[in-house]
Design a protein around this nucleic acid. Structure first.
Lengths: 215, 215
DNA sequence: TGTACATCAGTGAACGCGCGTTCACTGATGTAC
DNA sequence: TGTACATCAGTGAACGCGCGTTCACTGATGTAC
């Protein structure tokens, strides 16, 4: 995974003198890491700059300010998530199986990339951060659109009178709920209680079946 | 709705001289309001004290500090939510109907009391804030326990081989997902797309049915 | 290939600000006599 | 009923801190000749 682009093969932190060479990417990575560690509001420009080995003022060559950096992290998060969901969906196996794996990919992303996930779904930041920027034609890059598309491919016959978008919202809300309850430490766990993946898989099956899909 | 307790009927802000008379309650209310307006991290002790008409230092007579005040808000939120859910469940109508109304009460609470809800489910604050304090005997006051109980009363016959706690987690996660997506502005809305309540109702029915309840 | 120069990424010092918290104090309140 | 007193809720001034942001600058880089 190389996020930095350089003609030679030196890592982002290996500065050769005055110019950093890859400061923008390095700052985004630092922000992602700090948000993951300390939460969206525990993250600080000063810390990010220090980690990257640069004066805080240098950040303003690449971002308009703190909010812009966070928005960029969120935007990349949406892009990353979209890639991973698409990859899971286009794997092998029966359609329903691939759809279920897509759900697991969602939970994995939220768990393994809490920096991205927190930036993406920060309360109140929706307008600044919503992945509308990615929209090529009509699509927004939102998990919602990806789900609608995935349902279309997985269940081409549809769900009788039930709108696919309705079902997509159900599945997304369930996934997001499981992910955020787990992240905030409120999801009860223990012997006899299901793991996140099991929870989502069973829920998705019930929702899809309840919507009247011919499996 | 009177949160302040006094022998006469004067509101919390009507101070009569040196002593406030109801500072603790007033500060909690102020915190709840500011968190609702500006988010958990936009809230400030100085602002809360100013609103209430008191020096910031006065706060320390009643709370150990900022975190303790926020934790108190969260704790009251769990209590409030538990009351409302219990009230919805013990209304009139068929069991399943009452159970569904409980879900609507949950969504309403999250929407109308964003200050409480944000404090309750703040990322990372789970340990400090989890409603375990309320535990009389074994129960924690968590929505999870209330849901398990509600399912027990609503479907006394159970769900075949499916653990009630499993289903409770599904329903809670779906509710929380809908509530938080809506609160962060990410829930798609528009003509042809379902309102939150409709979404939850249909989802709960599918989950309960999928778990094998004899309706 | 070597030199002059324009570009602009990053420096370093400084800023104003508002935050949470502390401390010795003051004066309103309610109780004991 | 009136007075002395103990209590303790709230005061006000101050603190150290770290934040995001600004500004004139410097020097590394790559290009034109």
């Amino acid at each position: 995974m190389r996020h930095w682009q350089r003609s030679d093969d030196r890592p982002p932190d290996d500065r050769r003198g005055y110019h950093h060479g890859n400061l923008k990417e390095a700052l985004i990575e630092a922000a992602r890491g700090f948000i993951a560690e300390r939460g969206l509001f525990g993250f600080t420009l000063v810390d990010a700059a220090k980690l990257v080995g640069v004066t805080p003022a240098a950040l303003y060559r690449h971002f308009r300010g703190r909010d812009a950096l966070v928005a960029e992290v969120a935007f990349r998060g949406f892009t990353q998530l979209a890639e991973r969901l698409a990859r899971a969906l286009s794997g092998s196996g029966a359609p329903l199986e691939r759809f279920t794996r897509m759900g697991e990919a969602y939970l994995d992303f939220a768990e393994k990339e809490p920096g991205y996930y927190a930036a993406m779904f920060a309360a109140g930041a929706a307008e600044a951060v919503r992945p509308a920027r990615a929209a090529p034609e009509g699509r927004t890059g939102s998990p919602f659109d990806l789900l609608v598309e995935a349902l279309e491919r997985t269940f081409p016959d549809g769900f009788g009178s039930v709108d696919r978008r309705f079902l997509a919202l159900e599945v997304w809300a369930l996934s997001h709920g499981i992910a955020t309850l787990a992240a905030s430490g409120h999801l009860p766990a223990g012997p006899g209680l299901p793991a996140k993946h099991e929870l989502l898989r069973a829920g998705v099956l019930a929702l899809v079946h309840g919507a009247g899909a011919k499996k």
